[in-house]
Design a protein around this nucleic acid. Structure first.
Lengths: 103, 103
DNA sequence: CTCGTATATGTGAATAAACGAATATGCGAA
DNA sequence: TTCGCATATTCGTTTATTCACATATACGAG
């Protein structure tokens, strides 16, 4: 099952970046144009576009063109569930470390 | 929230590798010694140890020493839930691509 | 202590990811 | 067509990641 696991990992890899995580959470609030993401995340437009491309290639996000605007939206809402689980785990870990230090 | 997102991403990064995904699923079946993982995943011992170190640093796995043996186990079972969600998403994506080609 | 097994790590090479800056494309308006 | 805005891509560089190989450490047996 090496092959399936590689595919699995490629999806995980695609969400393993702080900018892309922020994009996904923003899109979870509502579909956004590239511009909105740029101002919301305060990153250069080229950076946002590059990260969007990676998400597009993994088919995690969908695009919809209207004139010169491109609106991005989540292709699979449950990617947010996965991210939320990870975030809660990380929170537990950080809390545990904190408790150990202040015990 | 840049900082929190970075932590979030570091956890995602830790599971974004095929070998580490295989290790996590193996540990989900039962706690394993390094040796068992080596034979089960058919990777060099140094490789396995390296990946275990990454998982350890992120506190995703726990270790228990008995003599010269070290048994690894999952620190947070719900990491598997997150992985399962991603796997199901990837499956959907692959199926959709397949359907498009053979339509 | 010495030996053998189990596990961990250092090092260097190969590969991949990320970024900034510049440039290119796509599209509507005039 | 030309201009200007929205978005995408290329290039060169820097930084991370991964691996194989060798070596190091930790521990129990004897």
């Amino acid at each position: 099952m090496r092959e399936a696991t590689d595919l699995h990992a490629s999806l995980c890899q695609a969400i393993a970046d702080p900018t892309r995580i922020s994009i996904l959470y923003a899109l979870n609030e509502k579909p956004c144009r590239v511009n909105e993401l740029v101002t919301q995340l305060q990153s250069p437009q080229a950076t946002i576009s590059r990260h969007l491309k990676i998400l597009r290639e993994q088919a995690i996000v969908e695009t919809h063109r209207e004139g010169s605007f491109v609106t991005y939206s989540l292709g699979y809402q449950r990617i947010i569930q996965a991210l939320d689980i990870m975030r809660s785990i990380k929170l537990d870990i950080v809390r545990k470390e904190h408790d150990l230090i202040h015990e």
